[in-house]
Every structure is written in C-alpha cells, then in structure tokens.
Amino acid sequence: MDSPRHVGKIRELVYELKVEAVMTRKLITLAPEAPMSGLRSILKSNRISGVPVVSGQTLVGLVSVEDFINWLAQGGRDCPVGERMSREVRTLSPGEPLVHAIGKLEQYGYGRLPVVDGERLVGLVTKGDIIEGLLQEMQVNSREEEELHRYRASHFFEDMIADRLTVNFQYQVRGKTIEQGGEVASDLKRSFKRLGLHPEVVRRAAIATYEAEMNVIIYAREGTVDVSVDPETIHIIVRDQGQGIPDIQQALQPGFSTAPDWVRELGFGAGMGLPNIRSCARSLDITSEPGQGTTLRISIPLEPERVCA
C-alpha cells in the first residue's frame, strides 16, 4: 500500500474511532484518603506518571509526578493525596472521536486524560493508547479491504454471463534488477487470491511465474508475461527475446544449468527452474531459437486435483 493512502486513512480514522475504542480500561486508581508517601512506589512499579483519584467510582482528581515533586519541594509532610491532587481535571467522554482526545492532549500538554461517563471514571487515554489503537485499526482495515476485494472478485466467473469467458492479465518484465525479480509473480498471486482461486492453484501459478520471471531477468533482461484465465484453466505465456535455449531437453533435466556464478549466489541457477515450472503445471511447452528468444506456455487447471505433476 502507498503511504499517501495510509495518511488519508489515518485522517479518516481519527474522526471515526471513538475514545472508548482505544482507552485503557484496567486502571490503577487511588482513594483520596491514600497517603501521599505511597505515591512514589505506585508510579514507579506501574511505570506511570499519574493516577486518577476516585471516590467510589466518581473521579474527584488526578495526582501526577508533578504534584508529587511539588509536595516534596514543600517538605514532603505526609498527607492524603486528596489534599495534593489536581481537582480541575480535563476529561473525555467515551463517545468522543479520537481527534478530540488528540486536540486536548496537545492543547493542555497532558500525558493522559481520564475518560468519564457522567462522573464515573471508565478509562484513561495516553498518546501511546491512541497510536496503538490507530495501528491496530489500520491492520484490521487493510485485512478487511483485502477480503472485500476477494469477495467481490471471487464471484466473477459465476456472475459473468458469456458463452466463452476469459480474463487477461498482462505484465512487463523490463529493466528489473535481479533483486526486484518476483514482482510480477507477486502481483499475479495477489490478483489470483482476489479471484478466489483455489490456494493450491494460486501457489502453483505463483511459483511457475516466479521461476519464469527469474529466467527472463537472468537470461534475457526483458520480456512479457501474458496470463489468461478461463473457467477451467490458467494459461501463462512468458516471452523473451533473449539468448534462447540451444537444447530444450537438456534444459529440462533437473540440475542442468548454464547460470553464471553471480546468479547462483542469489540462490537461483541450480538447474531447477524449468523442472520446477513443469511440476507446477499440467503442461509446459517451450519453443526457443538460439539468439532469438524463448517462449514458455504453461497451463495450470483451476481444479487442483487435475494437475498431474
């Protein structure tokens, strides 16, 4: 996903998400009668910088590190926190949008804001809670989006009415470094998942395309990948104008390779590419002219059990 879309999504989410969705509900609170001398260990052991003070369930104040320091500076004579707490506490309500919480935290320079329902304390929101809540929502959102894509597309073949139906995907492999190899296979895989194809079929098509794409990058630098899907079969045609294959039967032998060392160092060129494509497909047809280029025709049935590898 691109980042401008992410930024736009976050902007939407701060208006959509409510305070109650991100607030911490498990709270550490103090009663107004609690001794000020006990505050330090509570802050330290919970790694927090302030504690809401409640009487029954009603929020009556907030006591923070700052109040503690002031108390120490003024002699540190023990007293109930009720005497040293800040009574004028800015609060949020559970139904407010996150953007209000962010605005208030900014405006008052607070690290945390208590959330009250009426007068009852129900939660606490920190900047950390907001960030975590947004990130989680972003994750859920992108998963939902992917599912929606998949749902819409998975009915495609059932919904279209035609005597003959074919979906075409075209990709260019051009000017790619070997490190970028796999982008076509990756895009194709995502599209096939959205089409709702069987996971095993998607895996086979992705692997076959990936191997073929790597071959194009290694031996021919550029080429095209044309994929067509009909209700029975995936046809993948990979064409390049590279050096060609002098002996196709030999090239199909597992382990036979003409790859230079730098390709082997990248984990490819072990002579498994074409055999691998063949084992993923129902049929692999190779035509090649030395010096002219190579064309691979790969077909994979949409029903996984019909693959005879």
Partner: peptide
C-alpha cells in the same frame, strides 16, 4: 531457492544463509 520452491508442500520455516530479497519472495510464493 528453487529447491525450496519445488517442495510439494511448503515448510513453515525456512533456514537459509541467503539474505537477498529473493528469499522473501520465495517465502511469499
């Protein structure tokens, strides 16, 4: 990576000394 890709069922964990992006691609496929 081709040896990994030719396995009938993919492993859940791949141990490798290869660190270029192709190992992540292989995992993806």
């Amino acid at each position: 990576m081709s040896d990994v890709l030719c396995l009938r069922s993919a492993p859940n964990l791949l141990l490798t000394a290869l660190t270029n992006p192709q190992c992540v691609r292989t995992a993806e496929m």
